[in-house]
């Protein structure tokens, strides 16, 4: 399978603070790939290097064989980006926002069809400022898709949504992936990752500490001390705890 995103030994510093020390993973075309890690682990900085918004201090990032910070023009067309907080112009109506963003791209999706696919048609005339959290996220995804990208980055897509809205969002991501688009999913929610991701990477304190399938992550610690079966979340937390302890010991 062809590689969509290749990140090798990525390092990023801001002034004297080193945020990323060594992040390495690759994403195959067409898969849903999860990026996990605690707050401040460096997930968003990694994503910003992938979309070209940040220049790596060292290491390499390639997106569909292009270097993002060098070839930003092409990357902006190839990668749709849904930001962590849904940043949208509140005074505009849903259809207006989509029409405006569509015109920023050379080969945009048909707005009416995109609204149908993302369940936004009934909200076409609603002001963005009046939308619920779930509706805003739908619009945010639609905006990430409007430029006909080959890769879409979804950053903490379902944070703060109720269970029903989360389920609807997951189904939407599955439909997007079904259309052949590579999905990078930044998430804290292990149930979401388990349901959606083909593979994932775990980043801790700016380093990759695991890359594999959700099943392989689970296999790292499949059973509890009492012999019971652990959830993926337990396995993830144990991995984080173990590696945090190891990192602390190294630092000491």
């Amino acid at each position: 399978m062809t590689t969509a995103v290749e990140v090798r030994e990525l390092r990023k510093t801001f002034g004297s603070t080193e945020v990323l020390h060594d992040v390495t993973f690759s994403v195959r075309q067409g898969e849903i790939f999860g990026i996990l890690g605690p707050n401040g682990a460096g997930k968003t900085t990694t994503i910003e290097c992938i979309v070209g918004a940040q220049r790596p201090t060292s290491g390499t990032v390639e997106v569909l064989t292009r270097t993002p910070h060098v070839d930003r023009g092409a990357i902006r067309q190839l990668v749709g980006y849904q930001l962590q907080s849904s940043v949208l112009p509140n005074a505009l109506r849903v259809r207006e926002v989509l029409e405006v963003f569509a015109r920023l791209y050379p080969a945009p999706r048909d707005v009416a069809r995109l609204m149908d696919e993302t369940g936004l048609t009934p909200l076409a005339r609603a002001r963005v400022g009046t939308l619920s959290g779930g509706q805003r996220q739908r619009l945010s995804i639609a905006l990430a898709l409007v430029g006909s990208p080959r890769i879409v980055v979804l950053d903490e897509l379902t944070t703060g949504l109720d269970p029903q809205a989360r389920l609807a969002m997951w189904e939407l991501v599955e439909r997007v992936s079904g259309g052949g688009i590579t999905v990078l999913l930044v998430s804290h929610a292990l149930d979401e990752v388990e349901r959606l991701c083909d593979r994932l990477t775990v980043v801790l304190e700016g380093r990759t500490i695991f890359t594999g399938t959700p099943h392989e992550l689970h296999e790292l610690a499949p059973t509890a001390p009492d012999g019971g079966r652990r959830s993926l979340q337990d396995a993830y937390l144990e991995l984080i705890e173990r590696r945090s302890d190891a990192a602390g010991t190294r630092r000491n």
Binding site: V51, A53, G73, R76, Q77, V79, Y81, L83, S85, V87, L88, P89, F101, L104, Y105, P106, L143, G147
Partner: peptide
């Protein structure tokens, strides 16, 4: 302030 500039920076605008 709202991050709209960042959002636009991710488009070809």
């Amino acid at each position: 302030e709202t991050g709209m500039l960042r959002r636009l920076d991710a488009t070809p605008a």
